[in-house]
């Protein structure tokens, strides 16, 4: 069965890009526009992995990761955060919150798939 990946980003283009790449590689993709939307969708959708931006309105990436990790059913789910090179402190925060790994923006489709293989198999 195809694995489902949730992409959380307030930027439509980034979500499009992630969806385009992942669907091409045979994954199912669920989109969420921010942390709050992501949490709501997690309640009734099975998700194998999450790719989230850090800077988002309503609920940001760090907050989302913390919330997801505190939910027992998603305790061990791989979470990848999208960061930029100027956000090293955010990266540390994200890891502390329980992110599995990160991808530095901008990234190429191959890099995204490489990281996916690393954390999702």
């Amino acid at each position: 069965m195809a694995k489902t990946i949730m992409t959380v980003d307030d930027s439509t283009s980034v979500r499009q890009m992630v969806k385009f790449t992942l669907s091409g590689a045979g994954y199912d993709v669920v989109e969420a526009v921010d942390g709050r939307d992501a949490l709501a969708k997690l309640q009734n959708t099975h998700v194998d992995m999450m790719i989230t931006d850090l800077n988002m309105p309503n609920l940001d990436g760090i907050g989302l990761i913390r919330a997801v990790r505190s939910d027992t059913s998603h305790k061990f789910m791989p979470i990848i955060m999208l960061t930029t090179e100027s956000q090293d402190t955010k990266k540390q925060d994200g890891k502390a919150a329980g992110a599995t790994g990160w991808i530095v923006k901008p990234f190429k489709p191959e890099q995204l798939l490489g990281v996916l293989k690393k954390v999702l198999g």
Partner: peptide, 21 residues
């Protein structure tokens, strides 16, 4: 303002607008 700039940069680079980024 930072977030807006950040998104423009990040997405721009992904869609080939390297100069913009």
């Amino acid at each position: 303002a930072f977030r807006a700039l950040h998104t423009i940069k990040g997405s721009g680079a992904m869609f080939g607008f390297d100069e913009l980024a």
